[in-house]
Nucleic acid binder design. Structure first.
Lengths: 247, 247
DNA sequence: TGTACATCAGTGAACGCGCGTTCACTGATGTAC
DNA sequence: TGTACATCAGTGAACGCGCGTTCACTGATGTAC
């Protein structure tokens, strides 16, 4: 997909020239706007996110927002990218902090971190893993940040596959294996067994299903609602689902 | 939960008295309103569902809607109940049509039917399994219809457990088992092994995760997008996840 | 079968509110000489 | 260091639009005698 063709560089400003007072003010106010936008999101949901309300919160007149954000959709895009980056970073940090542990332990640590992030940021979670925002079409910029999280999972599984931790990966139908052909061919470094890949994607979707069910209220009156109960239940789900991938 | 305390009876009208012309007109127009509401839902999402737009569609003045629907939230509730009933009925019908088959085959048939319903009615699906509508609080009336679908799955698993089709159900932690205590105690007929229940709930959430991922675009560029590919991939997910429950 | 009254569906105007976005403008900050 | 000009942030008014809900009303349909 051609992501990261050149070394990372901030695309906003020419590299030299120290930041002026105006630059710093701009950065600060932009941050304030994003914070207000996140709060708005939590209150009314992405569909009703309002630039005017954000302007009010920040203390400017509604039209002034347009000095910082070109449009409502662009703001949504920034929030989406932010959310993918945040949940991806949470996964990366969790993996890094147990890098010496066994693959199943890494898997567990990463998924616990993902769930914890989702519980702390339910509306940002819903923004990226809930229903698509009607009338909004996600631009390509969101693709790269969205891959950070699955990449962490793939890394764990690839390492476990390489060092023999995964004994017998499950076998799936040829038809299902072939559905991954276009993707495998477009990603150069990916030479995992396709059955293992199908299983990996299944665990990925399965545990996001578990988190969504918890967050969206579908296990209300099913699983006890104390935080420790919910955590124990999710742990059990991690362990069950980990079997699918041979961990 | 006290659902179905008395024999089913339409709560709207006194049982006798044949329907008058007015009654029939009312029923017809109510149906038209619900259809328009479903179309609205598909166009703009639940958050922006507009009574005025629905009135326009049906060809009445905006205030006339209030002869049929007490408020916007009440309309949403009706749509939600309708959606739970429809997906529940799809599952029940699928199970009934393969009632003589083996448990794994029934499981597969039901999940295929659920996915098919979701693909055909993506916005109704998102309404009930996507992000909660901000500012909307679901009333108790939605609980009973929401249980129809999981009930079908439980029935299949209970039968498979009883006739020995499920050899060795997986074992989960005591802590996770205990999280189901309140629910098991409140449902009289439920004497399933709690490990099996945890596994059942996990498969339930897992396959809804798979459907949501497909519908909400998360496997775009991952799994080939032709309908047959997607179906084959989902079939593989069913089979993988079925193992969690011993099928 | 015919009339008097009650019920209901639908109208149209109004209340009070919100939204995204554009535009000409003032005044402060930054840059080049 | 000082001045002239360019850049930018923020203002306030406006455009044109949408929304949920209430209310007094007209006219058609249903009911009881």
């Amino acid at each position: 997909m051609g992501v990261m063709a050149s070394p990372p560089r901030s695309s906003a400003a020419p590299p030299t020239r120290p930041p002026t007072a105006r630059d710093r003010a701009r950065a600060e106010i932009t941050a304030e706007i994003m914070t207000a936008a996140r709060e708005q999101l939590a209150e009314v949901g992405p569909g009703s996110l309002s630039l005017r309300a954000i302007a009010r919160e920040v203390g400017m007149v509604s039209s002034a927002i347009y000095r910082y954000v070109p449009s409502r959709d662009a703001l949504l895009t920034r929030l989406i990218i932010e959310a993918y980056d945040a949940i991806g970073a949470a996964a990366e940090d969790a993996q890094a902090s147990v890098a010496a542990a066994s693959a199943p332990e890494q898997f567990r640590a990463v998924w616990r971190a993902i769930r914890a992030w989702a519980l702390t940021n339910p509306h940002q979670y819903a923004l990226i893993y809930g229903s698509p925002v009607p009338g909004y079409r996600a631009p390509v910029d969101t693709v790269a940040p969205a891959t950070r999280l699955p990449q962490v999972l793939l890394n764990i599984l690839a390492a476990a596959g390489a060092d023999g931790t995964i004994a017998a990966p499950p076998v799936v139908s040829e038809a299902a294996q072939r559905t991954l052909d276009p993707m495998v061919e477009s990603v150069p470094d990916l030479d995992a067994d396709r059955s293992a890949l199908v299983a990996a994607i299944t665990t990925w979707a399965a545990l996001f299903g578990a988190i969504s069910f918890e967050l969206f209220g579908h296990i209300h009156n099913v699983v006890a609602s104390e935080p420790e109960s919910r955590a124990a239940f999710f742990d059990a789900q991690i362990d069950l689902v980990a079997r699918l991938v041979g961990l």
